[in-house]
Simulated assay, not measured.
Amino acid sequence: MDCMIETHHMPKPGETVLGNSVTLIPGGKGANQAYAAGKLGGRIGMIGAVGDDAYGRRLKGNLEDAGVNTECVEIICGGTTGQAFITVDEDGENAIIVIQGTNRDVTRDRVQKFAEKIRDSDIIVMQMEIPASTVEYVKDMAVEMGKTVIIDPAPAQRELPDSFWKGVDYIKPNESELEILTGRKIRTKQDIRDGARMMLDKGVKGVIVTLGEDGCMLVTENGEKSFETTKVKAVDTTAAGDSFTAAFAVALSEGKDCEEAIRFGQKASAVAVTRKGAQTSMPSRSEITN
């Protein structure tokens, strides 16, 4: 559950500022992406965990309203549903602190119970708000099954072993996440290229680096390509990356090639940043195809 705080500007260390408002909005990177994929018409199910509390019940219900199959989202008695505290300034930029809660309980053993669901899927999308060991375990399982694997590496973690990345089809870091993953400064377009190629060397097949209003860059062993994006007035960038990832995956599932899927993802994120919140900002199919 996202606790979104609107303020004039981000507080500096030691500074107290007055906020304008506070709102509770269903969120979570995996749930955001599942919700967005459902709204876009994707056949989507989610594996995860929530607490036996009001937040957990609301989050599950919200996913179901978007057409997401939640039979593999377990309710853990005594657990606390994951939460995020999001500060958004008047320019739409955000800073986020995540409390994992029951996301920590999405373990290898818990996921193994749903192996058939993974086998029945074409594309597996994962994030880093669950244990990295679980992500790697599911990745290995999905690769062995011949599935397309997409990892949104947020929140980014340093010094993950190369084995973690081997066989991943696509990762979608932003510039700061790429910097954390590679351990090198990312300041220029050449830095982005070099950082992305470091991830290719670790076994990733395609790196899509999102660059905010500057679009994104795709880097593969065959070369690189930049994609400009439509200029819009950003109100809140909280779920821009999640809407992109979801739309990218939906487009791939419908047979579009990587470049077409990226453009579809950009259309979705361009709509999402014009609205407040995470799942409340996700576009419908008609909004990005008309």
Rank of each mutant, 00 (worst) to 15 (best):
D2S: 12
E6Q: 09
T7F: 01
H8I: 03
H8D: 11
H9T: 13
K12F: 01
P13F: 01
E15R: 04
V17Y: 00
L18H: 13
N20Q: 10
S21K: 13
T23F: 12
T23H: 14
T23C: 12
L24R: 07
G27Q: 00
G28I: 08
K29R: 06
G30F: 05
G30R: 09
Y35H: 15
K39W: 07
K39F: 02
K39Y: 09
L40Q: 15
L40A: 14
G41N: 14
G42N: 15
I47D: 12
G48Y: 12
G48H: 10
A49W: 14
V50S: 03
G51C: 11
D53V: 12
Y55E: 13
G56F: 08
R58Y: 14
R58A: 07
L59S: 00
L59T: 02
N69S: 12
V73I: 14
C77E: 14
Q83G: 07
A84T: 13
F85N: 06
T87W: 00
E90S: 10
E90Y: 03
E90Q: 08
E93K: 06
I99V: 11
G101C: 03
T102Y: 14
T102E: 14
D105T: 12
T107K: 08
D109L: 12
F114K: 01
E116I: 05
K117W: 07
S121L: 06
S121Y: 05
D122C: 02
D122Y: 07
I123N: 10
I124C: 06
V125S: 10
V125N: 01
E129Q: 11
I130D: 04
E136T: 15
V143Q: 02
M145Y: 13
M145V: 05
V149H: 11
I150L: 05
A154P: 06
A154E: 09
Q157H: 08
Q157W: 02
R158C: 06
W165Q: 05
G167A: 04
S176L: 08
L178A: 06
E179C: 11
E179A: 12
E179P: 01
T182W: 09
G183I: 00
G183F: 08
R184F: 05
K185H: 06
I186T: 01
R187V: 10
K189G: 15
I192P: 09
R193E: 15
R197N: 00
R197C: 00
R197K: 00
M199I: 09
V209A: 09
V209D: 02
T210R: 03
T210N: 01
E213V: 07
D214Q: 15
D214K: 15
G215E: 06
C216E: 02
C216R: 00
L218H: 07
T220Q: 00
T220K: 00
E221N: 05
G223R: 08
T229W: 08
V232M: 14
A234Q: 09
D236A: 05
T237W: 02
T238P: 09
A239W: 01
A239V: 04
A239G: 10
D242T: 03
S243Y: 10
F244A: 07
A249K: 01
A249N: 04
L252S: 05
L252C: 02
S253F: 11
G255I: 11
D257V: 03
E259Y: 01
E260C: 03
I262S: 00
F264T: 11
K267S: 05
K267W: 02
S269N: 13
A272H: 08
V273G: 03
V273R: 04
K276G: 08
K276L: 12
A278T: 06
T280E: 09
S281P: 11
S286F: 07
S286P: 02
E287D: 10
N290K: 15
